[in-house]
Amino acid sequence: MRAPIGDFDDARPAPDCLELLVAPVADALRAWSGDVPAEQLIYVDTDPEIADTAAFVEHYGAELLDASANCVVVVGKRGGESTLAACVVLSSTRVDVNGVVRGQLGARKASFAPRDTAVRDSGMEYGGITPIGLPGGWPLLVDAAVVDADWVLIGSGSRRGKLIVPGKAFAGLPGAVVLDGLGI
């Protein structure tokens, strides 16, 4: 199979390689019920040593920067209560934590979650966190530009491998709220 974007040696429908995915992502694909069929989500095998965006696009092609998205875990705090959420923005932008995120979560303060918290609570590896398979109840804030993209390259839950997903699929993920201006 040829990936719809990028030049990868190994591209397969994600449901055909559940054994390569971390448990939360594999479980989410097994239970998939989105408007986009699960078979349209593509797993591509990649080198875990170059999973970070800058190194990844340098190796696999600069054109992937505009087709890639990052999923970051944030924490909103208000009155002693903390809320973890995930934000998905195009890799060429950054998350508006102090504006859009804080307002959407109704938080007095919002910041990126500590690495240990993001890894422990998501069940995924740092550098590979993906919006597919996040814990139930987490708000998932998705920039409208991600949803508008034909195809988006995101993490697979681990540093090895990526997922290529139709942009419109993000709007149907559990807890998803599509927002203009989340990525600035």
Score class of each variant (00 low, 15 high):
residue 27 D to I: 02
residue 95 V to A: 10
residue 61 G to M: 07
residue 43 Y to T: 13
residue 95 V to E: 12
residue 78 R to M: 01
residue 27 D to H: 11
residue 79 G to R: 10
residue 80 G to Y: 03
residue 50 I to P: 00
residue 72 V to K: 00
residue 29 L to H: 10
residue 88 V to H: 08
residue 22 V to G: 05
residue 85 A to V: 07
residue 57 V to N: 01
residue 35 D to Y: 00
residue 39 E to L: 08
residue 20 L to Y: 06
residue 95 V to M: 06
residue 78 R to D: 06
residue 19 E to L: 04
residue 27 D to G: 10
residue 78 R to E: 09
residue 64 L to C: 00
residue 76 G to I: 07
residue 22 V to Y: 08
residue 70 N to F: 09
residue 100 V to F: 03
residue 35 D to R: 12
residue 81 E to M: 05
residue 99 G to Y: 00
residue 97 V to K: 02
residue 57 V to T: 14
residue 26 A to N: 09
residue 96 D to R: 02
residue 17 C to E: 12
residue 24 P to M: 10
residue 60 Y to F: 13
residue 94 R to Y: 14
residue 82 S to Y: 03
residue 90 L to C: 05
residue 21 L to C: 07
residue 40 Q to W: 05
residue 78 R to F: 01
residue 16 D to K: 10
residue 98 N to L: 08
residue 30 R to K: 13
residue 66 D to H: 14
residue 85 A to Y: 02
residue 63 E to I: 03
residue 50 I to Q: 10
residue 93 T to K: 15
residue 92 S to T: 15
residue 90 L to A: 13
residue 61 G to I: 08
residue 68 S to K: 01
residue 44 V to M: 11
residue 51 A to T: 02
residue 64 L to A: 00
residue 87 C to N: 03
residue 47 D to S: 11
residue 37 P to W: 11
residue 62 A to E: 15
residue 47 D to R: 12
residue 71 C to D: 10
residue 13 P to Y: 08
residue 67 A to W: 04
